[in-house]
Design a protein around this nucleic acid. Structure first.
Length: 133
DNA sequence: GCCAACGTTGGC
DNA sequence: GCCAACGTTGGC
């Protein structure tokens, strides 16, 4: 069981869109590091859903519904399917994560541009604790 | 809206 | 194979 974080601009595709759709194809990733992370994803892995730009916060938890398959728009790349698990009671903002010593090494904090990134279990647990006490 | 940081491309 | 130029992301 692995933990990941995926980013999306809410104006492009938000958590609410995902809840409405029940399932979505996570495609359009055009970065090698991000692609490698997509490849590693197994069905049932947990994803933190992050809103970039407007919110700059982790807003929900999703899971991998289908493991890697060719990106329908470009066969050289890959996609996965994800489905919503639950919304966080309170979003955990980037500012909070940055201010938190326990999350100082999180990829989100250190390398903010990577759109699909691994999350350590401790980091995941800590974020949930921050959000829901 | 600006710009820093980073990844990718392409000329040499 | 290096590195400058360019494009994109995303925080501010």
């Amino acid at each position: 069981m692995n933990y990941w974080l995926v980013k999306s601009e809410p104006s492009t595709y938000s958590w609410d869109d995902l809840e409405k759709d029940k399932k979505t194809t996570w495609d359009g990733v055009r970065n090698f590091q991000a692609r490698n992370n997509l490849k590693e994803m197994k069905k049932g892995d947990i994803l933190l859903f992050y809103h970039s730009n407007e919110d700059k916060a982790i807003v929900g938890i999703a899971k991998v519904a289908r493991e890697q398959f060719p990106d329908p728009k470009d066969k050289d790349w890959i996609a996965v399917e994800i489905s919503p698990e639950r919304k966080l009671k309170t979003p955990v903002t980037l500012a909070q994560a940055k201010a938190d010593a326990k999350l100082a090494n999180m990829v989100l904090v250190k390398s903010s541009r990577l759109s699909v990134q691994p999350v350590k279990k401790e980091e995941f647990d800590w974020i949930i604790k921050r959000s829901e006490g």
